[in-house]
Amino acid sequence: MENKKKSIWVFGDYRNYYQNRVTLQLISKAMDLAKAIDAEVCALVFGHEIDEWIMEYTAHGADRILAIDDPALKSYSTEQYLAIMEALVKERDPEIILIGATDFGREFAPRLAKRLQTGLSADCVGLEITPEGLLVQIAPSFGGNMLAEIVTEHHRPQMATVRPGTFKEIPHDNSRKAQVERLPLMKGLPAPRVRLIEYERCAEKEHSIENAQVIVCGGRGMGNKNNFAKLHELARILGGGVGATRPVVYAGWADHDALVGQAGKHIKPKILFSFGISGAIQHTAGLGEADFIVAINKNPQATMMKMADVAMVADAGDVLNSLIKELKKRIRE
């Protein structure tokens, strides 16, 4: 360990690399933050046969990589990662730890923060540095349309999980160099108590709406289950998928798989149709990467309408019916 240069750590969550590039996005943002506090950006990679990720993180801007490559780390393990992180943090004292708000990140980060007895903001949508060098964590708050600026004043490291899609990754650049520290797996770590028996990638999930070009989302404004079901017809015509808000999922109009938002899918369609959705942040949290939004709502004041590129002030069911009819006509002709 040389000098006391501050360090911003980015946890390498590589398991879903092709669907989810949040680690790269965080490295990019960490580079900005690092300038403000004169720190280095350090990516962490734990696993087995992880050279691919070491190279990726290097090419995407990390100054340093802390890598532990060990067969015992072949699959993700919260407990082992916790033990490793605890040891590393004690030894190296990072200023900031950023973790992608993936399912794994959101399970792992709270435990890590608790173990390190520090604060954590969940699912941040913005990060800034104050003139005093504090990390400002901008996180959705109060379950409404509010954002809170949160700081961790007296405890270190400052920790945040960050919503995928919040920041842009920098382009891949093979000429970049990072200091790669390959560390041995620490001796004497407690054996993990949670044993992974089976795991498999769910193919059906990969074809889910997370990767669809066109998504048709519906909310309570669809009125009932039957009207909601018609969204599938529009999605079929457009070659896209159907998404839903939480009230709709709870009402049983749509499967949980269709849930878009903070607790569900983060989508990135080229065109998003939003039918009868008011735009609670739990839902809009999942729309950060939607290119072009068409919202349909009787209420022009709805948040969703204000977020949209095109806002149709009309009954969602009527517009849906017309759209299906018109598109069928135009495509057939």
């Binding site: 879903n16 399912d103 399970e107 949670v194 992974l196 089976e198 999930k205 990969e206």
Partner: peptide
């Protein structure tokens, strides 16, 4: 979680 179906004990 994250597109993986997992069974744990």
């Amino acid at each position: 979680v994250d597109n993986f179906r997992e069974t744990m004990e």
